[in-house]
Amino acid sequence: MKILVNGAWRETHSSELARALEELGYGASVVSTAVNGEFVAASQRAHTVLADGDRLEVLAPMQGG
């Protein structure tokens, strides 16, 4: 399945968001996620199913003004 991760196409085998994040290398990271522009809380990642072509945003703390 191909999904758009932070603007780049990536291949994943897992359709469940929590597993897909591990597969993409975000295992233990402090991140927040949104699928197709909608916030998905960490507690919902195990219950969120991704579909081919979904847009996944994975955001982390960064310098800001």
Binding site: N6, G7, L24, G25, Y26, S29, V30, V31, S32, E57, V58, L59, A60, P61, M62, Q63, G64, G65
Partner: peptide, 22 residues
């Protein structure tokens, strides 16, 4: 201090280092 959220690269994990610092 003010902070932001940005796209995190799984390879670099820049956000994790920044968050530890703060």
């Amino acid at each position: 201090v003010t902070v932001a959220l940005r796209r995190e690269s799984a390879g670099e994990r820049a956000g994790q280092a920044f968050w530890s610092l703060i």
